[in-house]
Simulated assay, not measured.
Amino acid sequence: MRLSLPAALCLASTVASFAVDDHPWRAPSSSDHRSPCPLLNSLANHGFLPRSGRNITSEELIGALSASINLDPSVAEGPTALALTTSKTGNPDTFDLDNLDQHGVIEHDASLSRADTVFGDNSSLNLTIWNETKSFFDGETISVSEAGKARIARIRSSAAINPQFSLLEGDQQSSLFETAFYLIVFGNGTEARTSWVNIFFEQERLPYAEGYTPAATPIMIETLLDVAGKVAAVP
């Protein structure tokens, strides 16, 4: 059954007010650092992370993910540790968002919204690629099937034009988690609100003003694994 626009996804005004008032969205300046990850960029644009995108500690990243989308700290520990391995700040305990451009750590081929590294800019939103992805999203909500088919199409498109295409086991897991993630954060794990997903990818903004609120209970690894499995099963 399609998710209706309503009650379950509408917000608690107090939470929305907190997000809008205390963490207003602001576009990055030309000197701010950003990454291939729209979520981390959104957190910096809202000030959950340093708006400069520089010298981010593990504590800051884990805390930002918890405060903004209610991701359980235990789930954030793995990606945070990976992020620190890309550090070029001179301090192994911090990283800049653009350090995440390094291919094969967190960034990978067949992104839903970025070009592959071999073509140059693997960090900025690529509207041609994103338009291909969202062409599978026909209604007010995105189903697991639609999300899964969009992901498969990106993999096939990337493989067809990238002479160095690679999607190793770890990359495949990251790819599945990325799709599962927006289904959970902007929906219920079964369907996500299309307009919120578009805002997130295109503006690198959490759609608090449109009614988004974080999950009432922390997002756990079991939930991510369950939804990722459903995405992987899409033919």
Rank of each mutant, 00 (worst) to 15 (best):
N198F: 14
T179Q: 01
R193K: 14
P207E: 08
I184G: 09
P218Q: 10
T179P: 00
S195C: 10
A192I: 06
G211M: 12
I184V: 15
F186P: 00
T217R: 15
E202A: 14
M220L: 15
A180I: 05
P207C: 08
P207R: 08
L183S: 04
A216P: 02
E204G: 05
Q203N: 14
E178D: 07
A192L: 03
T217H: 14
T213G: 01
P214A: 10
E204L: 13
G211T: 08
T190H: 04
T194N: 14
F201L: 05
A209V: 13
M220Y: 07
E202Q: 15
Y182M: 09
M220D: 07
F181S: 07
E202I: 15
T194Y: 02
F186N: 05
E210F: 05
I199S: 10
A192D: 03
S195I: 08
V197A: 06
E202Y: 15
F186G: 06
R205C: 12
T190Q: 11
R205A: 11
N198T: 04
R193L: 13
T194D: 03
A215Q: 09
G211F: 12
V185S: 02
T217I: 12
N188M: 02
W196V: 09
W196S: 01
E202D: 14
F181T: 08
E191A: 08
Q203C: 09
G211L: 07
Q203H: 08
V197T: 07
F186D: 04
Q203M: 12
T194P: 01
P218S: 06
R205D: 01
T217V: 13
T213M: 06
T217K: 15
A215E: 11
E210M: 14
Y182G: 04
V185F: 06
T217Y: 15
Y208T: 04
F201W: 09
G189I: 03
R193G: 01
Y182E: 07
W196H: 07
G189L: 00
N198C: 04
F200N: 02
Y212P: 01
F186M: 05
Y212W: 13
T179N: 00
E191M: 11
F200S: 00
L183G: 00
R193D: 06
V197H: 02
W196N: 06
T194F: 02
G211H: 08
F201H: 10
M220W: 12
A215G: 14
G211P: 12
R205G: 00
N188S: 01
E210W: 03
A209I: 11
Y212E: 03
T217F: 11
G211S: 09
A215H: 12
Y208Q: 03
P218Y: 08
A192T: 00
E210S: 11
E204I: 10
N198S: 14
T179V: 13
I184M: 10
F200D: 00
E210Y: 11
L183Y: 06
